[in-house]
Design a protein around this nucleic acid. Structure first.
Length: 788
DNA sequence: CGATAGCCTG
DNA sequence: CAGGCTATCG
């Protein structure tokens, strides 16, 4: 049934399409880092932090311009390390931004604090401390060096040989450092979910391949670069100790920096040598460079070049070399750290489109991203119909029964005894239009394929009744009824593709509670967005395969974060600082969630959300304790597909929710309420139909045709749509309409036949309807709020 | 006994 | 919607 191949083929293009969105984030990074002068740090500078802390990277620069000369002095005061750390990507003469320094540290701590739950935090803290220590040590050494230098210049005579050796040493050190960095990075990856990241990287590369040029300029590729940087470095210089470093980087090991220290020492030696040579200002210069940031892009540093320089230019070259090395190391470290921080913080940025907090990077960018993402979501959502078709296998199983039932019903079994059945099938025919799978696919390659492939028998059955009306492909125009206020780009459809969900749908059983649906598809590109999408997997969802993580994070869900009207279920990252209080207060699931729902009824900004504490899941995603209005919306939309979701299903589709008894109960209660409303409406309309039928006895048939129908043009439909899809942004799946018709007819039949006198008369209907649940589109597996 | 559906009420 | 209550199920 599934045609994975198709999916994949289709999907790839999508990914590309998506790239813009994804790229945006990285781009932001790069921009911020590049654009803003790295602040001088006391502590290791982590560009990331700065970004986070400072909303507008660029703006920050203002007021902190120091001439290089000025910097120079400042730098002296500062630790070498810091410099190294912060200026990873600086290419132009750097300008000092002091503000960030302390903030950076504080911010870092803040962040950590917030995520105290996470073991990672501890790790990182350790690491950071180490780094600091290292730096201090190095500084001390520097001091020593200075003294030594003063002592005598005889070493200077070492001549080229010595220098050479030094160079060699430096190189080795550098290598080591790189290795370490790599190891560190790996560690981070592991911590966050290697897979996750890797996938992300992959996807990124993918994209970059296509739009490399543009992205690069943006710095979008940055992540990729980061990942590759270490590799590249290694490549450049043959690495002796290749993987050795890894050992020293046990996940939490404190050791990671040990080597670093050594390196430092070595470097210092080098410096010594240089100084000895008589470069009075050498040390100074060095510091300046370090402190100031990179004059050279570390990436650009090539060992060979340096060597040449050294040879030819002698001491100066050596210094340069040393500097370059330092820079490189610093940048590498910074990158790693940056990356990690990003992972942690990104969520914040996205969620909070709000500029206020420190984090907002480029507002414009964010907005765009958000919009796109939203579009994606929309696309997914709107395209729901297509999806309905594609049901998970599970559905097949379960649905088949349901389908059969439907058929039976349609056949007229339902018809009231008193009244002759009109053409059952005909009556039943709902104006459903079946989407052509092809159309769907085009629109949403990922989704389309899987869906179509998965069509349930039930669907088929249902569809059978209908003429093959082909609806206009959802592509350009989402089926949204009202051209929704949301401006969708025509292109949006493409973006949709990005949704991993589509792909995933094919592979995994939609709502299988017990068996974690394997999401085979790697489609989703990861992006930092994942992080942003506060939702990640739950720790509680052990069954979730790693792959799933991917999509959980997929962009589509981010949409809501971007939505002004929507509030991210999670507090905007930038708000973290602020969040603390609010979040902390909701420590206990039960009340919090309630509070969340009620309190937030207005859906104010995420910041106000009830949230509850955020939990960093293994995947690096944030799960929130408590349910938000966004979750409610999502639940309502899910109702279009499943009226009786199991708790496991809910957990699967709300990865960003930290489930506990209360939350689970609440969500189940929601669906109970949804059903209640649904059945009430069905009964109401059924009774009305019966009345009408009786009234115009002459034409009972008419009644049926007109009343026992739930077309999109009917009042019943309107009411239902209003209730479950208030924003009307989501395309109500045909399947739901079909089910509604079935229910309506059942009620009608029961009432007509007088069965309603039985106190339990509804039970039978419930039983029928519960079998008609269909798979929820994979898109819903993504965290976030689907539509506003 | 806990989970959940359904009903009723607010 | 949420609470409360009951009935059912494993």
């Amino acid at each position: 049934m599934d045609s994975p191949t198709d999916l994949f083929s289709d999907s790839s293009p999508q990914i590309h399409e998506f790239s813009p969105t994804l790229t945006a984030l990285p781009g932001v990074h790069s921009q911020s880092s590049a654009g803003r002068p790295p602040p001088a740090f006391r502590s290791p500078g982590f560009p990331l932090i700065h970004h986070l802390l400072q909303p507008g990277g660029a703006p920050r620069r203002i007021g902190h311009l120091n001439t290089n000369l000025g910097i120079h002095r400042q730098l002296e005061e500062r630790h070498l390390e810091e410099n190294a750390g912060e200026r990873d990507r600086r290419v132009e003469p750097r300008i000092e931004g002091e503000e960030g320094v302390i903030e950076g540290e504080d911010g870092l701590f803040e962040i950590k604090k917030r995520h105290s739950d996470v073991a990672l935090a501890a790790e990182w803290t350790q690491d950071i401390l180490k780094v600091k220590r290292m730096k201090l040590e190095s500084r001390q050494r520097d001091g020593e060096i200075d003294r030594n230098t003063d002592r005598g210049g005889r070493r200077r005579e070492g001549g080229r040989e010595v220098r050479r050796r030094e160079k060699e040493e430096l190189k080795e050190q550098l290598e080591e450092a790189r290795e370490r960095l790599q190891a560190l990075q790996e560690k981070v990856w592991r911590a966050f979910g290697e897979k996750h990241i890797e996938e992300e990287e992959k996807s990124r590369r993918h994209r970059s391949g296509n739009k490399a040029a543009a992205d690069r300029g943006e710095g979008d590729v940055r992540m990729m670069e980061e990942a590759d940087i270490t590799e590249g470095m290694y490549d450049e210089e043959d690495i002796d100790g290749g993987g050795m470093e890894k050992e020293s980087f046990p996940l939490l090991s404190a050791s990671p920096f040990e080597n670093f220290d050594k390196q430092r020492e070595e470097r210092q030696k080098e410096k010594e040598g240089k100084l000895e040579r008589g470069e009075g200002g050498g040390l100074h210069l060095e510091r300046v460079i370090e402190g100031a940031g990179l004059w050279l892009d570390c990436g650009g540093l090539v060992r060979g070049d340096w060597d040449v320089g050294m040879e030819d230019e002698g001491e100066e070259g050596g210094q340069k070399f040393a500097q370059a090395l330092k820079l490189e190391l610093g940048s590498a470290v910074a990158r790693v750290i940056d990356r990690v921080l990003h992972l942690y913080t990104e969520t914040l940025d996205f969620t909070s489109s709000s500029p206020p907090a420190a984090i907002s990077f480029l507002p414009s960018d964010v907005g765009n991203n958000g919009r796109k993402e939203r579009e994606v979501w929309m696309g997914l959502l709107t395209k729901g119909r297509g999806e309905e078709k594609t049901r998970g296998k599970e559905e097949k199983m379960g649905e088949q029964d349901g389908e059969k039932q439907l058929q039976k019903m349609s056949n007229g079994s339902l018809l009231p005894p008193g009244q002759p059945h009109r053409s059952e099938p005909t009556d039943l025919t709902i104006p459903l239009v079946i989407q052509r799978s092809s159309d769907v696919r085009k629109a949403h390659p990922l989704l389309g394929t899987p869906l179509s492939s998965h069509l349930n028998p039930s669907q088929t059955n249902l569809s059978l009744h209908h003429s093959s009306l082909t609806r206009p492909p959802p592509l350009t125009h989402p089926p949204l009824l009202p051209p929704a206020s949301q401006p969708k780009d025509p292109s949006s459809s493409f973006h949709l593709s990005s949704s991993s969900s589509s792909s995933s749908s094919s592979s995994f059983p939609a709502p299988p509670p017990p068996p974690p649906p394997p999401l085979p598809l790697p489609l989703l590109h990861y992006s930092m967005q994942q992080l942003f999408s506060r939702s990640l997997h739950h720790p509680q969802l052990p069954h979730l395969p790693p792959s799933r993580k991917d999509y959980l994070n997929s962009d589509p869900f981010l949409e809501f974060s971007s939505h002004p009207s929507h509030h991210p279920s999670f507090p905007p990252l930038p708000l973290l600082g602020h969040l603390d209080p609010s979040l902390t207060r909701h420590t206990h699931g039960g009340r919090e969630r309630e509070r969340g729902m009620r309190g937030d009824g207005g859906m104010r900004g995420g910041g106000g959300m009830d949230g509850g504490e955020l939990y960093l899941t293994a995947g690096g995603v944030y799960a929130q304790e408590g349910l938000s209005p966004c979750h409610l919306k999502k639940a309502k939309l899910m109702f279009f597909y499943t009226r009786y979701p199991s708790s496991n299903t809910l957990k699967t589709y709300f990865p960003d929710v930290k489930f506990n008894r209360c939350v689970t109960s609440q969500m189940i209660k929601w669906f109970s309420n949804f059903r209640e409303f649904f059945y009430i409406q069905m009964e109401r309309f059924a009774r009305q139909a019966v009345r009408e039928a009786l009234t115009r006895d002459g034409a009972p048939r008419l009644a049926r045709d007109n009343q026992l129908r739930v077309g999109r043009d009917t009042e019943l439909y309107r009411i239902l749509n209003m209730h479950y899809n208030k924003s009307n942004v989501y395309q109500v799946p045909e399947r739901f309409i079909e089910v509604s018709e079935v229910a309506l007819r059942e009620f009608y039949s029961a009432i007509w036949t007088g069965r309603d006198s039985d106190p339990c008369w509804k039970k039978g209907i419930y039983k029928i309807i519960c079998k008609l649940d269909s798979a929820v589109p994979d898109a819903f597996r993504l965290p976030g709020c689907p539509v506003g």
